[in-house]
């Protein structure tokens, strides 16, 4: 007999909470992204657990979409971080060129 679904659900809830806490308290953007991933993983775990208890494939299919979304989000999020860095460095470059004359 497998362990009851509740155990996994609580695990997922705690994972979600840890992720949310990290997202709210950490200051580094990259780590906040990681916290988002934690939260989405908690969601996936919940989906899979419910999928098992309900004997329904829908939950597993949903996990699929959550993963796609996670990937898309990370792509764009990291793009934004890169953009911020680029702009910072360009501003410093601009200052330098101004100094040059």
């Amino acid at each position: 007999m497998n362990v009851p679904a509740a155990w996994y659900l609580v695990l997922a809830a705690v994972l979600f909470g840890i992720g949310a806490y990290g997202l709210l308290t950490r200051r580094s953007a990259l780590i906040m992204f990681m916290c988002l991933e934690l939260m989405l993983n908690a969601v996936n775990l919940t989906f899979v657990t419910f999928s098992r208890t309900l004997s329904d494939i829908g939950g597993q299919a949903s996990v699929f979409f959550v993963m796609v979304v996670a990937a898309a989000e990370v792509t764009v999020g990291l793009g934004i971080v890169v953009a911020i860095f680029r702009r910072r460095s360009t501003t410093s470059v601009d200052e330098l060129s101004e100094m040059k004359g």
Binding site: P4, A5, A6, L9, F50, S51, R52, T53, L54, S55, D56, I57, G58, Q60, A61
Partner: peptide
């Protein structure tokens, strides 16, 4: 009670 244990409404049985 963690899950209401209703039968699946959509999709096929796992």
């Amino acid at each position: 009670h963690w899950v209401t244990g209703i039968p699946s409404l959509s999709g096929s049985k796992l």
